[in-house]
Every structure is written in structure tokens, then in C-alpha cells.
Design a binder for these strands. Sequence first.
DNA 1: TAAATAGTGTCTTTTAGACACTATCCA
DNA 2: TGGATAGTGTCTAAAAGACACTATTTA
Lengths: 245, 245
Amino acid sequence: MRGNLFAVAVNLVVLTVRSNRLHALLIERGEPPFLGAWALPGGFVRPEEDLVHTAGRRLGEETGADTGHAVVGHLEQLASYAAPDRDPRGRVLSVGYLAFVPDMPEPTPGGGAAASAWCPIDAVPTLAFDHDRILDDGVERARSKLEYTTLAASFCPHEFTVTDLRRIYEAVWRTTLDPRNFQRKVTSTDGFLVPTTTLVTGGRGRPPRLFRRGPARALHPPMLRESHRVTDDAPSSETSTPIRG
Amino acid sequence: MRGNLFAVAVNLVVLTVRSNRLHALLIERGEPPFLGAWALPGGFVRPEEDLVHTAGRRLGEETGADTGHAVVGHLEQLASYAAPDRDPRGRVLSVGYLAFVPDMPEPTPGGGAAASAWCPIDAVPTLAFDHDRILDDGVERARSKLEYTTLAASFCPHEFTVTDLRRIYEAVWRTTLDPRNFQRKVTSTDGFLVPTTTLVTGGRGRPPRLFRRGPARALHPPMLRESHRVTDDAPSSETSTPIRG
DNA sequence: TAAATAGTGTCTTTTAGACACTATCCA
DNA sequence: TGGATAGTGTCTAAAAGACACTATTTA
């Protein structure tokens, strides 16, 4: 078998919406390199472990899913990053994973991290390695996935209101949506939401109904965000490359 | 640095449209394992080489771009595959890349392949390793990318007619589109097509105009393929995974 | 001239967006 | 009662789909 050998790591872009703002889960590195710097959570792939297993394991460790806290969400592979000089220790390929989780208590650091925290997406400091780019790619993926899938519901707990769901879209897209048109759109899209009989009392206005996520995964027609630019909006990464002329 | 080490390979899903059918580029393996079986072209990532460089290099070798043949197309990262038992030689992670190229002469085998050929997508035999799944993921990605990007033009040569472009959509989606509505849609989408002054004579009807690809990359509103199922249409791979309940 | 393909015009249906209006809570 | 939020109805504009019709070629 030709070729040199790589260490293979998984890094997680874990997104959630807290206080109507999109946040990412960051860890403070507890060991070199980049000791003390902020980074994406992650870890090396163990022998006999598949990529998604590593990602799920580290996600559980960081979000405290192993403490019995019920986690509903979504996990998907994002992209791989393997620039020769991206890690000073040697040749390391990192597979990025993108996770959506509902708002939950403060994270519990794991995997050799000194600390961990939810950080608003527009206040993220410079990160270790090439994690800035991985994070950017993850956020961009999240923004476009909300357009044509029902994944916004992965940011919500098991039962949620239409307004809860709208706040997800507004936070991820940094925009505002008409509450009335949004309501009609999501409740009339077959399989997106399943109504319960429960109304949430205690709020300031008419009590909203609770819904659960339905079986639909694709959104047709999609939920288009406003004024998508028509010219080049390729992500920052290599993921889109024209070949010559 | 903890963790065991991996060999890292790149495998290519190279798609083209020939005779109004979607084809993939396959190679016949010239060495073990899977000697004599069909597989996706690929190769190991060299020291100091980035992933996209490996992919571009192998793409050029297989399609004969190094022979001076002008290649216009598209290359993007697809996903990574690293199941512990996917390669009998040991732990190998493969990064899938997806390429769109215009129809071109028969391929010239490279990289240790015994033979190579364009194979209609619905006539692909069982492939070596987990290449069936990589191919499936690539085809599915291609189908959905044609909906909301202008990448269909990457299958066309530098100048092409509206009918040429429509045949791409029809081949990739295995459907038929109304030629008149298609014409209006693509010519009225700002930045998709740039008209030339050339008309193609010699055909059977009114000579069509040649166009070049415009600067637009995203399609807004998207070009929706018919009757997208509303329920679960997750790809075959791990790329979409719900987390618990 | 007939057949074939390119391209335009127009009508209908569907959907997005704006927004009036009703419903139901709390203070 | 008034303010706030939930939810429905309705109008308009934009886009998709069906398809008649014109334009320009070859056989």
C-alpha cells in the first residue's frame, strides 16, 4: 500500500439557538498545540471505530448526553480537511461533522478540554488549526439546509410551538420572517409538523399549540431566504472548484 | 499524538452525459485487492499533497486532460468513507470527490488501471470496496445540485445550445422537461447563460443559438424536479443521522 | 410543401408576501 | 379594557406549467 500515513480526527460544528441567537460549541484547548486557544471539539478516530461513531461519541461527551439529558438533534458529515500544514504535529486529516442540538444547559468539558462554552456565532474568536474555516463551512451548510429540509426542527425540543420554530429560522438566517405567513407555510406543508392537543399557557397572549416534528425531511417547495445573491456564493472552502477554462 | 494511522485515498465520481444518458467513469482494477473488478478511479494522497490536488491530478490522468484536451467542468468534495473493514489491506480512509465533465472521447486508463470506460449509470456492475455507495452518494448529490445551482452547464462544452443544456437535466434527472418552458426559464434567469451571435446550422430545424455559461452560480428560484417525495429521502450513506429520540 | 426544431406569447394554477382581521390569553 | 401573541382570510405579485403560435431551417 503506497502513500504516507495520516492521523484521522473528527471535529464537530455543534450549533444551537439560545436567546434567539445562533451559537457554536467551543472548547478551550487543555494541551498543546494551541494550548489555551479556542477550538472546535473533536478527537481522534479510534481503532475499529467508524467516523460517525467517533462524532457521536464526542458529541455526547461534550453536550452531556451521557448524563441522561435527552438529546434530540441531527448529525451529518460536513467535509474533510487535510492541508499538509494544518497541524504542527504532522499529517492530520480532520473530518468535520455538523450537529444541530436544542438549547440545553451549559456544556460539560470532555476529551481533554480545559473549558467549553456556547459562543454566539458572530462573536467567535480566532480558532486553533483551520477550525475557522470548518466552522464557516458548517454555518453555511446549516443556512442552506434550512431552506430545503425540515431540519430546523432539530434545534427544537421534542415539542415546540410554531413561534419557537420561526425563531430558529430567524436566528440561523439573521433575518425576520412574517409570523403569519410562516405559520401558514409550515402548518400547511404536509408532514412537517404534527399538532398535539396541548396549548402552552402562562405566556402573554393567546396560548400557542405545541407541535412535534413530522415525518417529512425534504421541504417542497423550499423555504427560500430573502434575496439570495445570484452571483458567486461558493463556500469559503475547496468544496467548489471550477476546472480550468 | 494518539490514535492509529490511516492511509488516505481519494476516489472520484466522474459524471458525464453521453447520448442523453448519465455515465460514470469506471476503471478495471489492475492489481489486488479486487483484481479485475470495476471500481471508481482514485489514488493515494501523496506527501505534501492536498486532497483537492490529488483529486484534480487523478481526474486529469483519467480523462486525458494532460493530452491537451480542453476540459471544462466542476470538481467538489463529496464525503469521506472510513468503515474499519472497507479495505482488506488495512485502515484506509477514502475521500470521495464529485466531478462533472463534458462528453469527451474514450478515457485513457491511468494510475495502475487495466482499463477504463464510461458506464451508463443504470448499468453499473457491483463495484470494489464500498464504491457503490460512493457512486450513489455522488449521483444523488448531482441530482440535487442541478436544482439550485447552474452546474448543469459544467457538463457542456464551452459553447452550447439551450437544448444541449436541457438534455443534461433530462439525463441526470431521468425525466423530460417542456422545451418551451425550459427555454424561458434558463434564458430569463439573470447570469445563467450569455448569448453568442453564433447560430448552429446543419441541423434539421431552425438553427439554435449558442450560449456560454454566465457568472451566476446559484439558481433563484431553483429549478425543481417534479414530484419530489415529501417523506424520508435521506441518501444511502451516513451523511444524515438523527440523534436518539 | 412537410417535417422538424427554435423560440415567443398567453392563459391558468400555485405560491410567496403583505396585511386586515379574529381568537384568546394576562395585567 | 387594553396590550400581546396565536392563528385565519384575502388580496396581489411572481413563478411554474400547459400549450397555441410564430420563425427558420432541411428534405
